[in-house]
Design a protein around this nucleic acid. Structure first.
Lengths: 227, 227
DNA sequence: CAACACATTTTGGTATACCAAATTCATTTA
DNA sequence: TAAATGAATTTGGTATACCAAAATGTGTTG
């Protein structure tokens, strides 16, 4: 897609949100952000609306938009859907994946295994997410890819917090390899089982991470000034 | 959600698209449509972008946007996903539906049975779609509802064409009743079977309808002027 | 000290103007 | 008659101004 100013602004804001430089609850003041980026309100407004549609920003009447701050119920709902989308992609990828697709997926898994200790946590998490997205792309169902991407982004931060809480590298690499092996065999049941094994406790892990973060925020608030 | 000018314009355009007053391939000329509706380009532009995000309008560089004209592959992809979403909603609705939810779903099915012959095809199709959406809402998973709604709208026209081609009222009412009965029993497998039975041939039916329409368009084009 | 009223600030929304790029159309030439 | 060239039109995108509504802050009064 051809990139205009609003799309490049949206890309930059999205990256800031996913990478944690903009945190849940932070205000995105249209005029301020436009001025800082040296653009007018129009493309900034359009970018904010785009991210609003993607669920990353929450628009509020008569108040500045904020980085979306999702309830545990919303996170649970999205994870429930994400798992179903990954299962569907497993089934379809077994049928439709090209040899290039499978090669790419296996390559990403190898890259993670090889570089885990020498890559910072944020970059490694991005590779992890690109692995999952590559599996979905191997389904060759464009709607599935589009919808999956939406929830991948919405859940990004929560999953990153969960991954940071329990960075079990051996388990991660083993479970990704199980998914790759099952895909290479083009065995849908085996892929689904491997995915279930990999994501089965995702909500619990994410929930724990969000609880932990809420505790930390409460501690900071009680010693700091009340805003 | 509070309705501003762009949202009400988007709602009007969406209704025109779903109801067939704007057809696939029709241009949505920003300046012309804004003038006709007595508004400026800004809310019209925002409304067009909103429908672009929803997949109902296709934006093109340096050309007027057009009503999305989906390939059969895209339709097949979307149907594949829609069925999975309906299956998930069946499972969750069995667990989470309130008695009000079930009453509402049964009520819509009864309304269809009672009013089928006295309601025009477009209105009856809308009731049919509201039945399916009510089942999904009964899942109480907000992300599922949002995603399902997206594909319900994208597939609206193709499904309406298919329904018009083979308006089998008895079958439709019977199959909806089977879904309701299975929901009342809160039997996920029975609901999934009923949905599979109901939607199992959706792609074939839709594909036939799109083929038929393409034939008709070709016939019209060969006797009319080439644009 | 709390509540109320008024002023100020912030904000979303919309209108309009302008620009550059792409497309289309018309004319000319070979 | 077809191709090329130049002019005109259409179009998306962006900047800026303005307005009304909502939120916030401040001062006064009871």
């Amino acid at each position: 897609m051809e990139e205009n100013l609003s799309i490049s602004i949206a890309n930059e804001l999205r990256k800031d949100i996913l990478r944690g430089r903009l945190r849940p609850g932070d205000a995105i003041k249209e005029r301020d952000f436009a001025f800082k980026m040296g653009v007018s309100r129009t493309p900034m407004r359009e970018a904010i609306r785009l991210l609003g549609n993607e669920g990353l920003i929450e628009l509020r009447p008569s108040r500045s938009p904020i980085v979306a701050n999702q309830s545990k119920q919303m996170v649970a709902d999205q994870i429930r859907l994400l798992v179903v989308l990954e299962n569907l992609s497993a089934e379809l990828a077994c049928k439709n994946a090209t040899e290039d697709d499978l090669g790419r997926i296996a390559g990403i898994a190898e890259t993670m295994a090889a570089q885990f200790d020498s890559t910072d946590a944020i970059d490694m998490f991005e590779i992890d997410m690109s692995f999952h997205l590559a599996v979905v792309k191997a389904s060759h169902n464009a709607s599935l890819v589009e919808t999956y991407r939406t929830y991948l982004q919405r859940l990004w931060r929560a999953r990153f917090l969960a991954a940071s809480l329990d960075p079990n590298r051996k388990r991660l690499i083993r479970e990704h390899r199980a998914i790759v092996d099952a895909l290479l065999k083009r065995d849908p049941e085996a892929v689904k089982n491997a995915i279930q094994n990999h994501l089965g406790n995702l909500f619990r892990d994410v929930s724990n991470a969000l609880d932990r973060e809420a505790e930390e925020r409460k501690t900071l608030t009680s010693v700091g000034e009340n805003k």
